[in-house]
Design a protein around this nucleic acid. Structure first.
Length: 476
RNA sequence: CGGGGCGUAGCGCAGUCCGGUAGCGCACUUGAAUGGGGUUCAAGUGGUCGGCGGUUCAAAUCCGCCCGCCCCGACCA
């Protein structure tokens, strides 16, 4: 193992790939474009799952599981949906040594299978709303891949709600985006810009797609999750109907919403530094690592005994780990745990045992403080809270520093080229301008912010009237 | 699919031009010392040189075909 990772400033993409592997989050798998999520990375994902799952259940969503294989004809039922996913479908043509009568696709997303079942389960207005989520893998044949950010197979959750009215589904799509925003800002400590996707960027088959866009350390945008109002675009081809209170047959109004393991990549890129990961305490698999330090055997016995007491005093609510490996020096361990992003380190050596104190080191700032062993748990809990909020504050400041309000296209091009970041600019709403800007600058419209109609102006590209600013950026 | 790079020990590489029977660093194992920011020293383990075929007394090295991976671009959570 090389000692240092490529500095972020030197080569961001390389830094990212090295950190992900060195921190043992993931590794490349035998098949091109696919990856193994290693125990440490999976532990992080499990914490994400736990946090989100509780939030979903609190608003009445139930978990279920739908099959991996989908009849090809299902995918084809919604015109935009097929068109959108056809290029990245993996199709199964053989089974049991025989060619199948109808090919099956491996789910790229589950709207179609799920709604074929919804059509059977939903009969009456009393069956609504129906809110089902599943945690699963999906497969999309991507041409260009990157650990966590884009792989052929990835893990996610996809929620699918059905309602009686258009108002409810629109409201639900927005509500679920709010749930994600709460989770992402308060758990992953990543600030986001919330808004709507443009026509060209919305989900194939959706009426509206809502998104949360975060800024990574290289100032590029990353879409963290999406929430779609599907309207009746799927209920019609799949015949998801109910009888309303006046005995009329109606099609349901639906939403779907998802967040993937891509979020792990977002955490790496939003908080990491040249030392490696820096994990938000609420999600870190290990929140506190205790590194004992000794010279003689006598000291070793004393230090370890004291360290064990401390571990016990930290209680069961904190995720902690005593690193008593003898084959590594303390300095080596410091670097190792910093690479893995453990938010807080406790150092305890002979001097500390004698003075009944320990040294606390924060991962986010590197700051060291010496504190008495008495009341350590409270101190640790408080410090973890501080790290959590500092990570968010720091990312928020970075997002603001790198957001620019621009009105001329010349400035737009220059800023995108030289500084990067988010550009808030006026846009007339035409797909042509959007496409031209993308072609000329590679920047895309990440989101049309919800409160964007506060200020009128002129389109940054063609000068036509605009009712508000939208967010442009180069994106992952 | 277009452009670029690369396949030699678990990882990173040298050796390839100019054929002569495989080497360095890290990791790993054992031992000793060390231990408050990647600690030393010593002795070891580990390789069908991506695959197949050809040339040759002899191929990691020359020739042909194939396979795979990474990076950059078009498409995308």
């Amino acid at each position: 193992m090389a000692e240092k990772v490529t500095p972020r400033s030197e080569d961001y993409a390389k830094w990212y790939t090295e950190v992900v592997q060195r921190a043992e989050l993931a590794d490349y798998a035998p098949v091109r474009g696919s990856m193994v999520i290693r125990p440490y990375g999976y532990a992080l994902w499990e914490n994400i799952q736990r946090g989100l799952d509780n939030m979903f259940k609190a608003i009445g969503v139930q978990n279920a599981y739908f099959p991996l294989l989908i009849p090809h004809s299902f995918i084809a039922k919604e015109a935009e949906h097929v068109a959108g996913f056809a290029p990245e479908l993996v199709v199964v043509t053989h089974g049991g040594g025989k060619e199948l009568e109808e090919p099956l696709v491996i789910r790229p997303t589950s709207e179609t299978v799920m709604y074929s079942m919804y059509a059977q389960w939903i009969q009456s207005w009393r069956d609504l709303p129906l809110k089902i989520n599943q945690w699963c893998n999906v497969v999309r044949w991507e041409l260009r891949t990157r650990l966590f950010l884009r792989t052929l197979e990835f893990l996610w959750q996809e929620g699918h709600n059905a309602f009686a009215t258009a108002e409810e589904s629109e409201e639900d799509a927005r509500r679920m985006l709010g749930v994600y925003q709460d989770f992402i800002e308060n758990w992953t400590a990543i600030p986001v810009v919330a808004g709507k996707k443009t026509e060209s960027q919305k989900f194939p088959g959706a009426v509206n797609t809502y998104t949360l866009e975060a800024m990574m350390g290289d100032r590029r945008a990353l879409q963290c999750c999406t929430s779609h109002n599907l309207g009746q675009n799927f209920s019609k081809p799949f015949n998801v109907q109910y009888l309303d209170k006046s005995n009329q047959l109606q099609y349901v109004w639906q939403t779907s919403w998802g967040l993937s393991t891509r979020m792990v990549g977002a955490i790496v890129m939003a908080h990491g530094d040249d030392q490696g990961l820096s994990l938000p305490p609420r999600l870190a698999p290990t929140q506190v690592v205790i590194v004992p330090i000794w010279k003689s055997d006598a000291e070793k016995a004393q230090v370890l005994a004291n360290a064990q007491q401390l571990v016990a005093s930290l209680g069961k609510d904190l995720r902690h780990r005593l690193d008593n490996r003898e084959e590594y020096s303390p300095g080596w361990k410091f670097n190792e745990w910093e690479m893995r992003g453990v938010p807080l380190r406790i150092e305890i050596g002979p001097r500390d045992v004698e003075k009944k104190q320990v040294v606390l080191v924060r991962r986010d700032t590197g700051e060291k403080t010496t504190v008495p062993q008495n009341g350590l748990q409270d101190k640790v809990v408080a410090l973890l809270d501080e790290v959590q909020s500092n990570l968010y504050a720091r990312a928020k400041a970075f997002l603001e520093e790198n957001s620019h309000q621009l009105d001329s296209y010349a400035d737009f091009k220059q800023v995108i080229e030289e500084k990067g970041g988010f550009i808030w600019a006026h846009w007339c709403g035409s797909s042509e301008c959007e496409a031209k800007i993308k072609e000329e600058t590679t920047a895309t419209i990440r989101a049309i912010p919800f409160d964007h109609e506060g200020e009128s102006g002129k389109c940054v590209y063609d000068g036509r009237p605009s009712r508000g600013r939208v967010v442009f950026a180069k994106a992952y």
